[in-house]
Amino acid sequence: MVQRWSGRETRLLREAMRMSLRDFADHLGISDRAISKWEAGADHYFPRPDSQSVLDTALARASDEIRRRFAEALGASDEAPSATGAIAVNSHKFVPVFIGVDHARRLGAHMTVGTAAGWLESSLADVDHPEAPTCTLHVFACGVAVFHIIQPQEPATLSELAVWRYRSYASDLKWARAKIRDLLDEDHPHGPNPEYVLSLYWLTSSPWTGSEYDTALRLLSTPSVLVDRGSPDGPVPLDGSVEETLLANGLDHPDIVSFGVRGVSTGYAGWSGVSYASVSQERSLTADELVGCELAVQALWCFTHQVQQRVEEGQDPSMPDRYGWRFLRAAYSRLSTARAQETAQHCLMREAIMKTSGLADRLRAAQDALRESAD
């Protein structure tokens, strides 16, 4: 959230933590004179490591309530950005499929080595997609492959985008199944089979202002309210008045979790996907940060789903020792614990995605199943 701390931001953090100047200084392990000097700087920035890293660490370790209180206090304005024109979004789709450790090793041997979220071992390569200018295949050493498909869209309405989303999912799953089997030379009917697609929308332009802007981001993360998926002709848009009514009156959905910061960004995570828009580019998350988090989450979700399927089929879930219950224990710690240098906004984003995906519970359940199988 804060890439360079100003005196105002330092004071707002202290107030959010409800500490006196002396108590705040003691909490950070520095002198109260340093705190007073920072706060007296008003809008003067302190990018020096001695101040920035200390304050970043304090915020990363703060409770959820303190971070929310600080985010609210930091917002310079309650208003969304002014309208900038037609709807324009960058659609990021993630299509995970379990291929097994051996297949992952063989496939990854011919790819570029990389990491997702800075810690999960993987390899990647560009692949051709019939309807996307950019598609990258990420192969994780734990046995999961994830297609990352990027498709810029300029729909006339959110309902149109929602229908395209659901209709394209069917073709993307069919394409991904054929592509991964071709890459692995696995053409038998029980070969790797991707089961779902998850979307991340980065809003780059919009016609909305004020509360409509916020509602639009909510709708992007939860498109089902705009679509009739029971139609015999496949997904079709609901009457246009539904979208108009929702934009005018707002959308209060219990499964949507906010991770935006007023004056900096607007972001929502839901079971169906994630939506994000940058207000202050220098302070907001980057597309790579959002994509990196989703790649790690989807890879692990797919991995734990494979373990769950084995259990439900009455089999002992068997994984190589390197990717057994200790691997999942480490993954759970990585995704549920704030890092010392992690910004507050990144922490909020990760927590929102973890909560709405249900991955934390899945990691614990899979960890227990693999531990029992190993005993």
Score class of each variant (00 low, 15 high):
Ser6Phe: 00
Ser6His: 00
Ala16Asp: 08
Ser20Asp: 08
Arg33Pro: 01
Trp38Val: 13
Ala40Gly: 15
Ala40Leu: 13
His44Lys: 14
Val54Thr: 15
Ala58Arg: 12
Arg69Cys: 09
Phe70Glu: 02
Glu72Ser: 14
Leu74Asp: 00
Leu74Gly: 01
Gly75Arg: 10
Ser77Phe: 10
Gly85Trp: 06
Ala88Glu: 12
Ala88Gly: 11
Asn90Leu: 15
Val95Tyr: 03
Ile99Leu: 03
Asp102Met: 12
Arg105Leu: 09
Arg105Pro: 00
Gly114Ile: 02
Thr115Ser: 07
Ala116Glu: 07
Trp119Phe: 12
Asp126Gly: 05
Val127Leu: 11
Pro130Ala: 06
Cys135Met: 08
Cys135Ile: 03
Phe140Gln: 03
His148Val: 11
Ile149Lys: 01
Trp175Glu: 08
Arg177Pro: 01
Arg177Phe: 01
Lys179Ile: 02
Leu183Trp: 02
Leu184Ala: 03
His188Lys: 07
Tyr196Asp: 06
Leu198Met: 12
Tyr201Ala: 12
Trp202Ala: 11
Ser206Gln: 15
Pro207Glu: 03
Gly210Pro: 08
Thr215Ile: 09
Arg218Glu: 09
Arg218Ser: 12
Thr222Leu: 08
Val227Thr: 13
Arg229Ser: 14
Gly234Ser: 07
Pro237Tyr: 06
Leu238Gln: 09
Leu247Ala: 10
Pro254Lys: 10
Asp255Thr: 15
Ile256Asn: 02
Ile256Pro: 03
Ser258Gly: 13
Gly260Arg: 09
Thr266Pro: 00
Trp271Asn: 06
Val279Glu: 12
Val279Lys: 06
Cys293Trp: 01
Leu295Tyr: 01
His305Ala: 15
Gln315Arg: 14
Asp316Thr: 15
Asp316Ala: 15
Pro320Val: 06
Asp321Met: 04
Asp321Asn: 03
Arg322Val: 08
Phe327Asp: 02
Phe327Ser: 05
Leu328His: 07
Leu328Ala: 10
Ser333Arg: 14
Arg334Thr: 05
Thr337Tyr: 05
Gln341Tyr: 05
Met349Cys: 11
Glu351Gly: 10
Met354Trp: 00
Ser357Asp: 02
Leu359Gly: 04
Leu359Pro: 05
Asp361Phe: 06
Asp361Val: 04
